[in-house]
Write a protein that binds this DNA or RNA. Structure first.
Length: 455
RNA sequence: GGCGACGUAGCCAAGCGGCCUAAGGCGGGGGUUUGCAAAACCUCUAUUCGGCGGUUCGAAUCCGCCCGUCGCCUCCA
């Protein structure tokens, strides 16, 4: 399988050197509702894992929660709530959102607040080796001591130092040094440490958690493109300084950022985000996932109502194909869908090219319909369709409706219409159909009888 | 200012040197089927890939310049 590696800026053959493959994905900071950008990132790495597993490769996926940081503290203060309560609430809302999107849990979901000992131990190592230093109760990483600093993001330390809006902190040796441990300030949560009370800096947590759950090296490290600098760059620096294992991550995989119609990225700081919860009120789980897969993971995806509606209809087509009634008599010959499976695998092997994989699936859907019309046995083809679609986490289930309309009432109307049709009383039949349509019910007359669904 | 990404049909989006007179989805036109619909099927919907040059036997694909859009540069998936 080929994967694009941010570190080398090219696609590389992924070779399994550990079993299971070790995958670390940067998770969310729990101070607000997860939005569609988080959904995008999480779904992509979930599918990378499930596709690899489909190909017979075991993958252990770890995705963290950053449950203590500046934004959480600030938000809690604004809302007058306890920071830890805020954090717990949003861990829950993250899981709720991901369940809603049919995202399988990672193998481990560590939280910073539960990893403090390991974080402190890692910082301690860095201090002892001289890679970091204590100053005023905080600990900073010596960026300039690391000759390789900048290799992931393609930046030079001078470039960073010159124009970056670096924290003015007189205690630091150099402005480009970043905090591993932040000394306690009034009103902030803190833990005891060899340097006094404080809390972890933003980047060190991931190094500590990756190491604890996956070891000194990971095979795949994922996250949004916006994390490349400084977050991932700093992770590389810390981890490699501490362990001496280079590279810390063999493959850096970054997903493109989600943009809003106005071409700006969706972000909490811009306040233009759509929460997963809201999206699920209007669109089905499958539709949202379909929308994610219809563009390549490294391209920026655009959130647009039209795109979601199109995805919803596209899913409906696949559902239709999966549920098509097997004619199975005619030639009796089973239609062979194996070539589609091959196309699917080829596409996914090429840097997780989901749009191309979907193209194969849609072609299969068309073939199912045409073969059905010919009277071929389509059950194998349908099984293949479900198999491939399953790798992408699409269920093809009818979206649940919170419509309270009584099913029995609908069935009753359909029966009434059926008898009217038998009496060739088409105007009554059409009236009933209109009536059903007003109730949001669509009906379809088939040789096997009339079926219906909520529009 | 530095680093980077992108610009393909009405919309979304693959393709990244010859299999491209460019996948797939949505939308739209015409036809088949249907009592009429819905669903489905068939068919049409980019001779062209932001613009201009260049490299090459050959370019949407490589190079240069220009135009436009976006991201990162210590809050961010």
């Amino acid at each position: 399988m080929q994967l694009y590696n941010t570190l080398t800026r090219q696609k590389e053959e992924f070779k399994q050197i550990s079993d299971p493959v070790r995958m670390y994905v940067c998770g969310v900071t729990t101070y607000d509702e997860p939005h569609l950008g988080h959904a995008l990132a999480t779904v992509i790495f979930e599918v990378l894992q499930s596709y690899m597993q489909y190909r017979g490769i075991n993958v252990k996926r770890v995705q963290n929660f950053t449950d203590v940081d500046d934004k959480i503290i600030d938000r809690a203060a604004e809302n007058g709530v306890d920071w830890f309560d805020l954090t717990q609430e949003h861990v829950a809302s993250f899981f709720e959102a991901m369940d809603g999107l049919n995202v399988k849990r990672a193998d481990v979901h560590p939280r910073v607040t539960e990893e403090i000992d390991h974080i402190i131990a890692l910082i301690d190592e860095l201090v002892n080796s001289g890679a970091a230093y204590e100053a005023g109760g905080s600990v900073y990483y010596r960026v300039r001591r690391n000759e390789q600093y900048g290799k992931l993001s393609g930046r030079t330390v001078d470039g960073v130092a010159e124009l970056a809006r670096l924290e003015p902190d007189l205690l630091k040796e150099k402005p480009e040094d970043f905090a591993l441990w932040k000394a306690w300030k009034p009103g902030e949560p803190s833990w005891d440490s060899p340097w006094g009370p404080g809390r972890p800096g933003w980047h060190i947590e991931c190094s500590a958690m990756a190491r604890r759950y996956l070891g000194d090296q990971v095979d795949i490290h994922g996250g949004g493109l916006d994390l490349v600098f400084p977050h991932h760059e700093n992770e590389v620096a810390q981890s490699e300084s501490a362990t001496g294992v280079v590279p810390f991550a063999r493959f850096w995989v970054h997903n493109g950022l989600l943009r809003m119609g106005g071409d700006q990225k969706m972000s909490k700081s811009l306040g233009n985000f759509v929460t997963v919860r809201d999206a699920l009120k209007t669109y089905s789980t499958d539709a949202i996932r379909m929308w994610v897969f219809q563009s390549h993971y490294r391209s920026p995806a655009t959130y647009d109502v039209e795109n979601l509606v199109a995805a919803e209809r596209a899913v409906r087509r696949l559902r239709q194909a999966a549920e098509a009634v097997n004619a199975g008599v005619g030639t009796g010959e089973a239609y062979d869908a194996d070539h589609v499976r091959q196309r699917f695998v080829e596409a996914m092997d090429d840097d997780l090219n989901t749009p191309r994989a979907l193209a194969a699936i849609f072609d299969l859907a068309r073939e199912i319909f045409t073969e059905q019309a010919k009277g071929s046995d389509i059950s194998d083809a349908q099984a293949t369709l479900r198999e491939l679609v399953g790798v992408l986490g699409l269920t093809l289930e009818e979206p649940e409706s919170n419509d309270t309309t009584d099913d029995a009432k609908i069935e009753e109307l359909i029966e009434k219409r059926q008898s009217a049709r038998q009496d060739r009383d088409y105007s009554t039949a059409d009236e009933i159909r209109d009536q059903l349509a007003e109730m949001g019910v669509e009906i379809m007359d088939t040789p096997q009888g009339t079926t219906w669904r909520r529009a």
